[in-house]
Design a protein around this nucleic acid. Structure first.
Length: 282
DNA sequence: GTGTTAATAT
DNA sequence: AATATTAACA
């Protein structure tokens, strides 16, 4: 009777898994977005464990950006786990959904500069992505953007060659505005594939300020932001830059660099989605 | 595997 | 609405 009871209890206790045999529930049960928001699920380097309710822009390093060459992997993300399963093999395939990328005018400018620098021929997603050297930017991001940008250019060609004067209507207005935020290099429209015009390399050198640019994305109403990390190639033309998420609370702040489109974009953005602005002087 | 395009999904 | 993802194909 009693012996039986204590007996099954002992056996039951023996079969309990040891603590080290338990699976780490955090990392597998929490949503991917949450994992990203808290910098966990990245194998290691949980150095940023501040328990701030509100982030503001605290996730960013307040200190001035270090030189690109002196930043091997200072605790940021590793692009290997950001590749969406590109290289990860042993780790349980975490279907981490990366937040959608927000194409700011500044980011788009980089895109255009890269495309301009490459020339239409070599301007393919992979190459563009490498030249942009924006942390966390994936080939798919670029491909998707490139697709839309090409459609935009096609529209522009069609309208401009028609002999009409103004353009600005005919397609998605919001999209057009983003694309119009960065001047389209003239040789983008119908290009003889062998003709190499003067490269506005000067345009690229605008970014002589060494700054980091990281892709910061927002996921829906989760105001989580994320700093992608690690990049392989460091091009001499395009150094990395940083984008800072800014929370527009409706206050019509006028920065020194108050371009018209920025204002327009802000007006159009009734959503309080994070607006990104460069630290640089773009 | 990469690039392009259209369609579709979130 | 803006961007991602997928599918089909070169």
């Amino acid at each position: 009777m009693r012996e039986d009871d204590s007996n099954w209890f002992s056996k039951w206790e023996e079969q309990l898994p040891k603590p080290e045999e338990l699976m780490p529930l955090t990392q597998t049960l929490i949503t991917p977005d949450l994992a990203i928001a808290f910098d966990i699920g990245t194998s290691h380097t949980p150095q940023n464990h501040h328990h701030h309710h509100h982030h503001h822009r605290s996730l960013q390093q307040p200190s001035p950006i270090s030189t690109p060459s002196s930043q091997p992997n200072s605790g940021e993300f590793d692009s290997s786990d950001l590749g969406g399963g590109g290289g990860g093999g042993d780790e349980p395939a975490r279907t981490l959904k990366r937040p959608r990328l927000v194409w700011t005018p500044q980011l788009h400018k980089r895109f255009v500069d890269a495309v301009a620098h490459l020339g239409i021929k070599n301007a393919v997603p992979k190459t563009i992505m490498q030249l942009m050297s924006v942390d966390g930017l994936t080939r798919e991001n670029v491909a998707s953007h490139l697709q839309k940008y090409r459609l935009y250019l096609k529209r522009m060609q069609g309208l401009s060659s028609g002999g009409g004067g103004g353009f600005g209507s005919g397609g998605d207005p919001a999209t057009d505005r983003l694309f119009a935020s960065s001047p389209v290099p003239p040789h983008f429209l119908h290009q003889p594939d062998n003709y190499l015009p003067y490269m506005p390399a000067a345009a690229l050198q605008q970014q002589h300020h060494h700054q980091q640019m990281a892709a910061v994305a927002v996921a829906g109403h989760h105001h989580l932001h994320r700093h992608f990390g690690s990049n392989q190639s460091n091009h001499q033309f395009l150094s990395r830059q940083s984008l800072q998420p800014v929370h527009r609370v409706g206050t019509p702040v006028h920065n020194s660099v108050s371009s018209s489109y920025v204002d327009d974009l802000e007006s159009a953005q009734e959503k309080k989605a994070l607006t990104l602005f460069p630290i640089g002087d773009d």
